[in-house]
Write a protein that binds this DNA or RNA. Structure first.
Length: 289
DNA sequence: CACTTGACCTGTCCGC
DNA sequence: TGCGGACAGGTCAAGT
């Protein structure tokens, strides 16, 4: 569920909280959530200071002054929540937080900083992970070698977008949008939202969609992603930002989780079906072949 | 090559 | 109220 806007929102929060803090201690209780050698933890994590927090696709990169990076993928239910110490942030947790006292039963990793503040990696379904790697090796990861361009990059053009979509011209458009090697960061929510906006049926083959419509999809996708970042992302089930706050994009969603409701454009009832193995929301009147 | 299915997990919800 | 099963949907691996 964390897609590009959610991960970007977490990044923005962490980039306010973390840089400059020195890691003093770490606890973790689920091996797959923290697949690192103990010697690397000792040598390159403990005592390290956070320098920067970056994002690529749906992956967070927490850079350390040891030239190592904590690579984090939230997958479906991951959360990274920062909590300050009592002096700095008051007793308990902020009242706007969706999550309660931490750690809780979904906490997989706890990073404690020298000043008493903490970063909690919560992950109910245990699909996510937090991996320590030498910073130069991050871009060598198979995933980063294959992942497509950032859709919000200033130099990402409609022509590039269309050209990359055409690499899978015989596939249904939604499956192609979800393919991280075509364009980075799109997941189920923003695939459905942008296709509705561009009036394209999710099962339509790329080769059958005119360029003018694909150009509309490019605009729709960028607009939707930017709006969602503005709104702090989408909280469907348990996504929260680095302060534990939910995102409000779904208030503005046109089809996602709106089955049974009227389409904002034509009034036709939104339906939910399955496309490319995923729950898919469409207006059958606006989005046809 | 491209598509589908299964695996990884847990919590929630629905029908009986 | 209890219980089995479907479902949530990011990514990789295996199968067709």
């Amino acid at each position: 569920m964390p897609e590009l806007p959610e991960v970007e929102t977490v990044r923005l929060g962490l980039s306010q909280f973390l840089p400059g803090r020195r890691i003093a201690h770490i606890t973790h209780d689920w091996p797959k959530s923290f697949p690192n050698a103990e010697s690397d933890v000792q040598d390159f994590l403990l005592g390290a200071r956070v320098t920067e927090v970056r994002r690529r696709a749906k992956v967070l990169l927490i850079d350390l002054d040891t030239q190592y990076t904590l690579v984090v993928h939230l997958k479906m239910t991951g959360q990274l929540v920062f909590r300050g110490d009592r002096e700095r942030f008051g007793a308990g947790h902020p009242s706007h937080s969706l999550v309660g006292d931490l750690p809780d039963k979904s906490t997989r990793v706890t990073l404690a900083f020298e000043d008493g503040s903490k970063l909690f990696f919560n992950d109910q379904r245990k699909f996510g992970w937090m991996r320590l790697l030498p910073t130069p090796e991050v871009e060598q990861l198979d995933f980063f070698q294959k992942v497509g361009p950032e859709p919000l990059a200033a130099d990402f053009t409609p022509e590039q977008f269309i050209k990359r979509l055409q690499r899978r011209k015989k596939s249904g458009i939604k499956a192609v949008l979800l393919d991280q090697t075509v364009v980075a960061g799109i997941g189920n929510i923003y695939a459905d939202e942008s296709l509705w906006s561009a009036k394209i049926h999710p099962e339509q083959k790329v080769q059958d969609i005119p360029d003018t419509k694909l150009a509309k999809l490019y605009e729709a996708l960028r607009t939707v992603l930017k709006l969602s970042i503005e709104k702090g992302g989408s909280t469907d089930r348990n996504y929260v930002d680095a302060a534990g706050k939910r995102g409000s994009y779904l208030t503005f969603a046109n089809v996602f989780r709106r089955e049974g409701q009227p389409c904002a454009r034509c009034g036709t009832t939104i339906i939910k079906t399955k496309v490319a193995g995923r729950g898919t929301h469409i207006c059958t009147h606006c989005q046809h072949f």
